[in-house]
Nucleic acid binder design. Structure first.
Lengths: 115, 115
DNA sequence: TCAATAATTCAATAAATATTGAAATATAGA
DNA sequence: TCTATATTTCAATATTTATTGAATTATTGA
């Protein structure tokens, strides 16, 4: 991963791009629910009704973007979500919210806070 | 906008897709900093060093996705960010975090919270 | 080692998205 | 009304991204 508390622009682009595809967005949401245990690729495929090769393509896309990680367990490859990457993504978006007037409250920046 | 506290999947896809382009991501970040005052299209274009027609294309893409809104002020069209749409996007991602065990703490779901 | 299971890779094709510059629309002020 | 300013629209082209199914790699247990 990274040292930075905020993702770089390139990372953020890669990650938003990864999330902008139906199957991949569903994978991430499924894995968020699965928590740190994760799920084997095959289970994700059958849950989402996708072919193995299609899933594999999307999983490696997500992994390349740093949004999910994988580990082998026997014949299965278990995928799980990288929570800090998701958190960094919202941070990146709301960075310096409203001209930085609320510098200590980025994550919670609300429209009414910006008056 | 919407009644739902969480964006629908279709909305989320549209929004992530809108954010997965360099110029558009920069526009959103610029507008987040500008706060509720917003910025005229031309000022955004010169700030980002983009042609007018390119900016216009990306701004209408963002507006269609519900991430920015526009109002006319004289000859200028002022764009500003739709903060609730940004907030709903992270909510959508982290929805039912870790099998919903932490149902009252979605936004703050951390990897170590999921054990 | 052999057969079965789990997942990935590859190449061809299909589909979606971005860029460019010229033309069009809308507003403001002289 | 005329001209300048601000922005959008359009069509052609270029680029990126997704899908499919067959072939490949890796692991397990008999």
């Amino acid at each position: 991963m990274q040292n930075h508390p905020h993702a770089t622009e390139t990372e953020a682009l890669l990650r938003f791009s990864a999330l902008s595809q139906e199957t991949r967005l569903r994978i991430v949401r499924l894995l968020v629910m699965a928590g740190h245990d994760g799920m084997p690729a095959g289970a994700i495929a059958s849950e989402l009704g996708s072919s193995d090769s299609r899933l594999s393509f999307h999983l490696s896309h997500l992994e390349h973007a740093g949004l999910v990680q994988s580990r082998r367990d026997g014949r299965s490859i278990i995928y799980s979500v990288v929570f800090p990457a998701l958190a960094a993504l919202s941070e990146f978006l709301i960075h310096d919210c409203c001209r930085g007037f609320k510098e200590n409250n980025h994550a919670g920046c609300q429209p009414e806070s910006c008056d």
